[in-house]
Design a protein around this nucleic acid. Structure first.
Lengths: 211, 211
DNA sequence: GTTCTATATGAACGGGCGTTCATTTCAAAG
DNA sequence: CTTTGAAATGAACGCCCGTTCATATAGAAC
């Protein structure tokens, strides 16, 4: 019926999703009408219902895909190593992944309250799973005496908030390269969890004066 | 005509603002109708226009008041002292101030895109002014050799994102007291900017093994 | 007791909303 | 060719939107 890469095909599922993602990110779910999405696709409003059962599902699918991609990408990227190396990998991965899909990230953070209850619960579970990945690294690092974190849950949330914050100000072609941004945030993240050995600082003197 | 603490008075300006703030925070500006706000106040929709020229102004006033209160409160709270003491004051102030007004904070972060262009610019200017307060502390601290921040602007945005993140998970009566949360975040903030002397860690050994 | 005025009502305005559906279109299969 | 059936239209559904305005209400001032 729908959903197949059909014969007539050109305007198919992916197009509707792409249009919805772009518009939801720019104007917000509640402020975007199905007619506006249809216009973006180049179609009349009724035709959208060949590709999605309703507007809510459109939002939910975007958020679900994003979170699943995030988890899959991290699972694929994760390298072994000590907690410090894993933390570095996580920080760089998180920033890179999020900077590559600003629209999806924006929607995932801003439109949670427009999800119906069950959909909200499902997305939250995925988010929790991602947070758990970082928390495990921090817990391992603390157990190994590498990190100084009084509360791994708090540190997890603090780090993720800090890292995701990059998306609010980063603009393509800005003053700093992504690589440079990653490195600066990595240093801050390491400092925040007390992983001082990991910081590449030219700090000889402060050692004795500390305390 | 309106706006005066009139005789009949009970349902006046502040009530409309309070109702709008509560509803905007819970459901989002675009998803809240004037009729819903009126219902919250206990009045018919038309009566709202005695207290606000339109819905947009209602949103703008809420955000403007919030940002002005924030700046005023910080100006009143700021104590002199070295950059380290000022950073501690800022961190504690920020968390405390934001945890005390979750609805206003939520609106200030989520509804920016629903502001008309000029209103958006005015709010952004206020936000910038607040960020500048923190950046000045970081710049002074770096100049004094107390902080290790390669880029004060980035560090400012990273810290504010981290601190404001508390609002996304804090719930009244949770596992940790506000004071404890403040202290943990303070330690992370100090670590992030390389203000190691400020951390109350029992760390003697790592000094030599660093690098 | 009359006037005044701030406060509120409730109907109405034009318009947009999400969604449905009978109908049309048209490339491919027979 | 004819038939098929997925793809798309466009009109229609009932409903809610922000805002306006003529009208009503009722306490304060005189």
């Amino acid at each position: 019926m729908a959903r197949k890469t059909g014969s007539h095909a050109e305007i198919t599922g992916p197009k509707v999703r792409a249009a919805a993602q772009k518009l939801f990110a720019r104007m917000g779910y509640a402020a975007v009408s199905m007619r506006r999405i249809a216009e973006e696709v180049g179609v009349q409003a009724g035709a959208l219902y060949l590709y999605t059962p309703d507007k809510q599902t459109l939002l939910y699918d975007l958020m679900k895909s994003h979170m699943e991609e995030l988890l899959a990408a991290w699972a694929a990227a994760e390298k072994g190593g000590d907690p410090l190396a894993r933390l570095e990998a996580f920080v760089r991965f998180h920033i890179r992944f999020h900077l590559e899909r600003p629209d999806a990230v924006f929607i995932a953070y801003m439109e949670l309250r427009n999800l119906e209850a069950e959909n909200f619960a499902r997305i939250e579970a995925l988010r929790k799973a991602y947070e758990d990945e970082l928390e495990a690294i921090l817990a391992d690092g603390r157990a190994a005496g590498l990190f100084d974190v009084p509360d791994t849950k708090l540190a997890t949330l603090a780090l993720i908030a800090m890292l995701t914050g990059v998306n609010t100000w980063y603009r393509e072609g800005g003053r700093l390269s992504r690589e440079r941004i990653e490195s600066i945030y990595l240093d801050m993240a390491l400092g925040a969890v007390g992983a001082e050995a990991g910081r590449a600082r030219a700090m000889a003197a402060p050692c004795r004066e500390a305390e």
